[in-house]
Amino acid sequence: MVDFIVGHFNYWVIITLMMTGLYVIISTGNLVKKLVGLGVFQTSVFQLYITLSKVAGGRPPIFDKLPGYGTETKYGAAVDPLLGVIYSNPLPHVLILTAIVVGVSTLAVGLALVVRIREAYGSIEGDDIDEAEYKIEIASS
């Protein structure tokens, strides 16, 4: 039971963090805060992947080895890198590297839109913008 709680506790924390981000996105009407929420949501998903890749007692998946394909190492001894050393799983790291960059790309486009929306409507509150459009719609019909 203790093993189960210790082994699953970080999932629960990460889920809470994800939902915090999602809550900010859905609840706030402020466009900048929405994007902050999106960032928190995505960063928390990254945490889910990375926590998954951790192997108990592991080290970062980088060999202490020169780039040759012989047996020399930094320390001059021939060591099989897979012998006696535990490494964490590299694949989720790669995926998340990609996802981080995708995330910042989305954010940049989103912020650019916010700046233009501010210039066009004089507000970055979703409710104010809807109201402005609604008034125009009423006036035109």
């Binding site: 082994g7 506790f9 970080n10 998954l52 108990a56």
Partner: peptide, 13 residues
């Protein structure tokens, strides 16, 4: 149904 944190034998790892 998720594997324990740090599990070396989980499918993912």
């Amino acid at each position: 149904d998720m594997p324990n944190f740090g599990d070396a034998n989980s499918p993912a790892n």
